[in-house]
């Protein structure tokens, strides 16, 4: 079956916050189509609206205006419980700060999301072990997050994101808290997820991620811009200071 060219579609997406009496336009009328089974990297400087975009696409936040479609479902009109079920079935999340539950072992953290779908414990453990083996942590299954390195914790988080076998994986600065080698490992894992047929969307500052991307989105001040515009603005301060 051919990939859906509008697996993710957003139309006129706006997200405004009120901070200290002033309105912040995190996203200011963004229109994007993302095809199925692509590796999309969203780039932009701090405050450009990258993370806001990811959270809106993940149904973790509500837009001020605009429409969000994922796999044909309109997210911005779903109620909280429908969104929760949609996330559970369709999406996996990887966060910069890992967000593992400190009292649980690696195995329990990976199996955790399956509890909400009512999967039996034996099946949950079997699946979690399988995924920990895939991310190279089979021998650390009974270790708690505090007993794992940052890279290992993020690998546990990757395994957790995959436990419900989602079609779409979101990663928010997945290498932001990692050393260089661990960052590369995670990038390679995300690339492998894409190769296995998943749609991957990564929000990052890390320019190394671009080489894995099949699709790039550049954001500046809450608006989607072309790579040329982005390069011009992003490199402008360097050129001004160093005459490059």
């Amino acid at each position: 079956m051919n990939p859906n060219p509008s697996f993710i579609r957003i139309v006129g997406l706006q997200r405004r916050y009120e901070m200290g009496g002033t309105i912040v336009r995190a996203l200011d009328g963004v229109d994007i189509d993302i095809a199925e089974r692509t590796f999309t990297v969203v780039m932009g400087p701090s405050g450009s609206g990258k993370s806001s975009l990811l959270y809106l696409l993940g149904g973790l936040d509500r837009p001020t205006a605009g429409e969000i479609y994922v796999n044909g479902e309109r997210l911005d009109q779903m109620d909280e419980n429908a969104l929760a079920r949609f996330r559970r079935k369709t999406m996996g999340f990887i966060f910069q700060s890992f967000n593992l539950i400190s009292s649980m072992t690696a195995l329990e953290n990976v199996a955790f999301p399956m509890q909400f779908s009512g999967t039996p414990a034996a099946r949950r453990n079997e699946r979690a072990k399988e995924l920990l083996a895939q991310v190279g942590l089979a021998d650390r299954a009974q270790h708690k997050p505090s007993e794992l390195s940052g890279g290992q914790q993020q690998r546990v988080a990757v395994a957790r994101a995959l436990v419900n076998d989602p079609a779409l994986v979101f990663a928010d600065e997945p290498t932001g808290n990692l050393d260089t080698q661990s960052g590369v490992t995670i990038m390679q894992m995300l690339a492998d997820l894409h190769k296995s047929g998943r749609t991957v969307l990564v929000v990052t500052h890390d320019p190394r991620m671009v080489r894995f991307a099949t699709n790039k989105i550049f954001l500046l001040d809450g608006k989607a811009v072309s790579e040329a515009e982005y390069q011009a603005v992003a490199l402008e301060p360097l050129q001004a200071n160093f005459g490059g």
């Binding site: 079920r85 996330r87 079935k89 419900n164």
Partner: peptide, 9 residues
């Protein structure tokens, strides 16, 4: 996190 991984209210 619970909500992100699919917990309902």
């Amino acid at each position: 996190l619970m909500k992100a991984v699919g917990a309902t209210n």
